[in-house]
Amino acid sequence: MIPGHLQGVTLYSFTRLFHDRKQTLESLIREVAERKLGPGLEIIGFSSFRGFPNLSPDYVKEIRTLIDQTGLIPTSLAANADFGIRRDRNLTPQEAVDYMAAQIKAAKDLGFPLVRVQISLTPDDMEALLPIAEKLDVKLGLEVHAHHSPMDPKMVAHRERYEKLDSGYLGFVPDFGATTSAVSPSLKEKYRRLGIREDFIELLDATWQRHHLAGPPMTDQDQAARFGEFIGLAHQNGYPDLGVELAVNLTGLHGHANPDDWASMLHLVWHTHAKFFGIVNGDEPATDLAHLMKVFCENNYTGSMSSEYEGWHWNWWDDPFEMVEGHQAAIRKHCADNGRAVRTEI
């Protein structure tokens, strides 16, 4: 078989354990290595590193030594574009560049070859960051996350700019939440466990299906309308406190694009978020892995891929490590069906 992508995981999958202080950064990294969920390792800077992005040389050395000991390979450091940290105004373009540059520098120091950035950055912002990325030899990947999609006009504008610049440093991080095929069964299970009426759960599902048939929202107004629709449904059905949560989960995590659309940007992808919500009977019911892996294999994708377990938001009953193990096994199988051997060792 032909070598395929590099298997990996993001520590975001284990957020619940970290937030509850049941695991430390060190214990999570060691457990990922022991369970062979790597070798690729992705970390969110603002989640995992105290003091991020201003890290002392001693702390950086400690983290690098730990990762080296485990044999894991840093793949992506997820950055955040916090342009609203001040209350009197948004950061100026120069402040925004400086804010991102500090995180790119931290990624370089920690040994990460790529920084995941977010859509609040414009093509101009990305071009302004390019000299920093080139100087530090760190690639930048703009995450394509629901509700956006590969064909969203904003993403197309980024792609056209990256193609024009042809730098080898500006690209995308596809997130499989943009191309879901169903509402996750574990999300519906959560609402059942909370005692939410079945007819309301079915109404939510039917509403999501209607949006799915229409395809991803192509404007901010379309997205706002769908977001508002779920809030309205919650109010009309006696669950006003659930409104925002439902809207976020059903428009911001369960996106409507076709997996085929990833092909338009895979020439600019070095790292991927294999977002998933749960494993049932050895496969992922909400992200069509057979379809997704066919697209990635046919386009000869050989970058890194993090299993990103998002079900932890609502699933308090399953073990996130077992979920990731199941997800990676399913991905390996679907890649093998396409003649590709997922790389699980250096």
């Binding site: 955040n80 574009a81 916090d82 342009f83 609203g84 948004n90 977010q118 609040s120 706002a224 925002v244």
Partner: peptide, 17 residues
């Protein structure tokens, strides 16, 4: 809370209550 990276429209950020 006001989530400083989730600007829904100019000057308005997603809250968490």
């Amino acid at each position: 809370l006001r989530l400083p990276y989730m600007q829904i429209k100019p000057g308005f950020y997603l809250p968490n209550i």
